[in-house]
């Protein structure tokens, strides 16, 4: 976790968000998982997970406000 974070280019961000999305769904291809495990740092995944959780909560709240309005 201590090493400097790799530069976040577009592909990397996409990979993190992909990993987090599939994590929430709970399904992931073995090959993709191995790629994630070798290229992503734990810090990236954790931050991605927190952002993902926040987005998830936000979208649920949006849905709720649509339903109740």
């Amino acid at each position: 976790m201590k090493e400097k974070k790799a530069k976040l280019d577009g592909g990397k961000l996409l990979q993190i968000s992909g990993a987090v999305f599939w994590a929430f769904f709970g399904v992931r291809k073995q090959s993709d998982l191995e790629l994630d495990a070798s290229t992503l740092t734990p810090a990236q995944v954790i931050i991605g997970g927190i952002v993902g959780a926040a987005l998830f909560v936000g979208s649920l709240m949006l849905l709720v406000s649509l339903v109740t309005s």
């Binding site: 994590a23 709970g26 399904v27 992931r28 073995q30 998982l33 997970g49």
Partner: peptide, 19 residues
């Protein structure tokens, strides 16, 4: 079957359990 899915599903359940 789906070892990686199992890992991801466990992590997902853990995060969702907090909200």
């Amino acid at each position: 079957f789906g070892y990686s899915s199992m890992v991801y599903a466990t992590a997902s359940i853990a995060i969702l359990s907090c909200i």
